[in-house]
């Protein structure tokens, strides 16, 4: 049957409580993404499946319209809109900027979604989160996941760009 999204809100974000997720090699979430940038703004359903060597990101508007599937690997980014498949040899950030008008550090974003800072990169702790790569990451709501917790509502802000992510459902394999 269709999944029911009962999200049990967890307590406030505690960075040290998230450390074990560094060992999580693959995960998946379904949720909603809102982007507000100077030149464009949109909201979409988003499904992100992360494996060791690839990320499959699918986004769609209302009624599945405008569905886009991105497969990001070390070497390339494949963008499939259902009619056309385009392969880019550029960094995922540039491809994302081209398609969504926002340049998000994809490598770091993978960690941020799990409530983690990207290892080996400087950061500053701040209220409800941290600042890394010039992005202010705020975990506005956490959700219980077994004996641990995972983000439910994440805000990312840098200059005039705001990215909001709501994770309705986590799947940890």
């Amino acid at each position: 049957c269709a999944q029911q999204h009962i999200v049990e809100t967890g307590g406030a974000y505690q960075m040290r409580q998230m450390q074990h997720w560094y060992e999580q090699e693959s995960w998946q979430f379904a949720g909603r993404l809102g982007v507000v940038a100077e030149q464009d703004s949109f909201s979409a359903d988003i499904d992100w499946r992360h494996e060791r060597s690839s990320d499959v990101i699918e986004m769609a508007g209302p009624f599945g319209q405008g569905r886009l599937r991105l497969v990001v690997t070390q070497r390339e980014v494949v963008v499939d809109d259902g009619d056309q498949v385009r392969i880019y040899r550029q960094a995922a950030e540039r491809v994302m900027a081209k398609h969504f008008g926002v340049e998000i550090p994809v490598q770091a974003f993978r960690y941020w979604m799990l409530g983690l800072v990207e290892p080996g990169v400087a950061y500053q702790e701040s209220e409800q989160g941290f600042i890394q790569h010039g992005w202010r990451v705020r975990y506005r709501q956490m959700q219980v996941f077994g004996e641990y917790s995972l983000p439910h509502k994440i805000n990312l802000e840098k200059a005039a760009t705001k990215v909001k992510l709501i994770v309705d459902q986590w799947k940890m394999s």
Partner: peptide, 23 residues
């Protein structure tokens, strides 16, 4: 007008370039 309460966002588009208006 596209509104999502959890995302706290309203996006306003013209009819022709708004996905999902067609149905």
């Amino acid at each position: 007008w596209f509104y999502d309460a959890d995302l706290e966002q309203v996006t306003i588009k013209t009819i022709d370039d708004s996905l999902g208006a067609t149905p």
